[in-house]
Design a protein around this nucleic acid. Structure first.
Length: 477
RNA sequence: GGCUCCAUAGUCUAGCGGCCUAGGACGUUGGCCUCUCACGCCGAUAACAUGGGUUCGAGUCCCAUUGGAGUCACCA
């Protein structure tokens, strides 16, 4: 059997979007599942939209996420070059072949004439005006150096049907098809044309892409037919939405892969989550490693309807990946966030210990412990706690004793500090909560904190702990 | 607007005529655990868009309506 060859063909116009990444993911998974090849091709036929550095982002993101392509601009291959602007010469040749066979024709129409065309149902349609030009006239105008484009000559009757692996059979009336431009007046091919030529030349027999191409696929097929080439297998996928009405897009400032990484999402969680957007495994698996994804992926699990990107679920998945990291790995990954904030002045191991099970993204670490850096006067009502039976009055009695206990603690760590507090409670013949609660409030001024009084005291250090205790006692009057 | 496609809870989804008094997950929420919070564990909440068919039987098939998406560029 012929080897499966599929490709990811992005345009270097900026960051790699979540939708694009998912397309690459599915293509990669499907290719690998079938012992096929996954190819990267850069579609830069529109110089106007080229963004510097965008190509590098594509390479980097794909490699970082493990979507290693077998052939591509930076890794080579037998079908290169893999950048369309470097294959520019090829396209005209094929377009001319189509002109020769009558499947395409020269068009000299001016922009003004095009704009004057009547619009039908809200859309202007080219009227095949130049199709009737005589050979001599075309020759003459070409010799005169007139600007031209080459258009595909669509049949006006009949219909075109094709099969999509996700959406099934799709039929479109040929009369709906416009004589689209194949070669632009600057001599460059349009995306649609270059795509077909390159896919064929590169032996691509499986095309996976977004649903936005579903309705132009008949045009592609007509091109394949005109050349007498075999049509590829098509797998279109539904869009990823920001909400019910809007697609996720960089234009609206929606998160790209890089943004998510910067916010502290793990690449495994991102991949895992987007795999689940529009696809589901046969079983009920949710959290899946890359290898499990590879084992379970199947195009029959691809959904037909658009799915909305849910940051909450991504965050949940991310927290799962964070929790399963070893403390060392977590500390390692958290380093940039810690180093770039007030947290750099605190014990990293302790900071990590208190936050690993409490954050969904690394960016949250900073917020969770902000009381370490900011200790302002707080409302004494915080000492009120029904369950522990504490309030400002009980705090006033207990806090000075806590201070004294702490002052005498020799080894400043959680265990000793905790024992000191429990000991105090025992001496006073009260429940632990009666001293633990006010102690924590007095040290932080926060109703809820990661870790308890002793853990926070350990993090603050002896000096700062006693200082805060003194101040809180003073504030109680 | 024309054309194409889609339609299970707030969200992601399972379901391919009887196993569905619709399953899983996020979220929300009650409880347990607990030095508060978080984690973890146990429970709850909420859906087959509507109307017609077909069939002994419909979330599953057909049609219509409604809603949504995509597309209609010398952009990809």
């Amino acid at each position: 059997m012929e080897q499966l060859r599929t490709r990811f063909a992005p345009s270097p116009t900026g960051y790699l979007h979540i939708g694009g990444l998912r397309t690459a993911l599915y293509s990669y998974l499907y290719a690998k599942k079938n012992n096929g090849k996954f190819i990267l091709r850069i579609e830069d036929t529109d110089q106007g939209r080229y963004v510097d550095g965008a190509v590098d982002i594509i390479y980097r993101t794909l490699h970082e996420t493990g979507l290693d392509y077998d052939e591509g601009p930076d890794v080579g291959g037998d079908y290169g070059p893999y950048i369309q602007s470097q294959r520019a010469d090829e396209y005209m040749k094929y377009a001319l072949q189509l002109v020769e066979s009558g499947h395409a024709y020269y068009c000299f129409c001016s922009e003004e004439r095009l704009e004057s065309l009547p619009s039908v149902n809200g859309a202007r349609r080219y009227d095949k005006h130049c199709l009737s030009l005589s050979k001599q006239e075309i020759r003459r105008r070409l010799d005169d150096g007139e600007k031209f484009v080459i258009r595909q000559n669509m049949p006006t009757t009949g219909s075109t049907t094709y099969h999509d692996a996700v959406y099934g059979d799709i039929t479109i009336e040929n009369s709906e098809l416009e004589d689209q431009i194949l070669i632009k007046s600057d001599g460059m091919p349009t995306y649609n044309f270059a795509n077909v030529i390159d896919d064929h030349l590169m032996g691509i027999n499986c095309v996976m892409r977004g649903i936005e191409y579903l309705s132009s696929t008949p045009k592609y097929n007509l091109l394949y037919d005109a050349f007498g080439w075999e049509r590829p297998m098509y797998i279109h996928m539904p869009p990823i939405m920001k909400d019910a009405q809007h697609k996720l897009s960089k234009r609206n400032g929606d998160a790209s892969y890089e943004d998510l990484i910067k916010k502290g999402y793990l690449k495994d969680a991102i991949i895992n989550y987007i795999a689940l957007l529009g696809w589901s495994p046969k079983d009920d698996s949710e959290k899946m490693s890359f290898d499990e994804l590879l084992a379970k992926f199947d195009i029959s699990g691809i959904n037909k309807s658009p799915s909305i990107f849910d940051p909450k679920k991504l965050a949940w998945l991310n927290s799962l990946y964070i929790k399963e990291m070893t403390p060392e790995a977590f500390a390692d990954y958290a380093t940039p966030w810690i180093q770039n904030s007030y947290l750099k002045n605190f014990d990293k191991t302790l900071v990590c210990k208190l936050t690993q099970s409490r954050v969904e993204t690394f960016a949250e670490i900073e917020d969770k412990l902000r009381f370490l850096a900011e200790f302002d006067k707080f409302d004494v009502a915080l000492y009120d706690n029904q369950k522990q039976k504490t309030n400002a009055d009980t705090a006033r009695q207990v806090l000075p004793l806590v201070r004294n206990k702490f002052a005498r603690v020799e080894t400043w760590d959680n265990e000793h500090l905790y024992n000191a507090l429990v000991e105090l409670a025992a001496e006073l013949e009260v429940k632990n909560g009666k001293v633990l609660w006010p102690a924590r409030i007095a040290l932080t001024g926060w109703a809820a904190t990661p870790g308890g009084a002793s853990e926070i005291a350990e993090l603050l250090g002896r000096e700062e702990t006693l200082r805060r205790l003194d101040r809180s006692v003073a504030d109680l009057g």
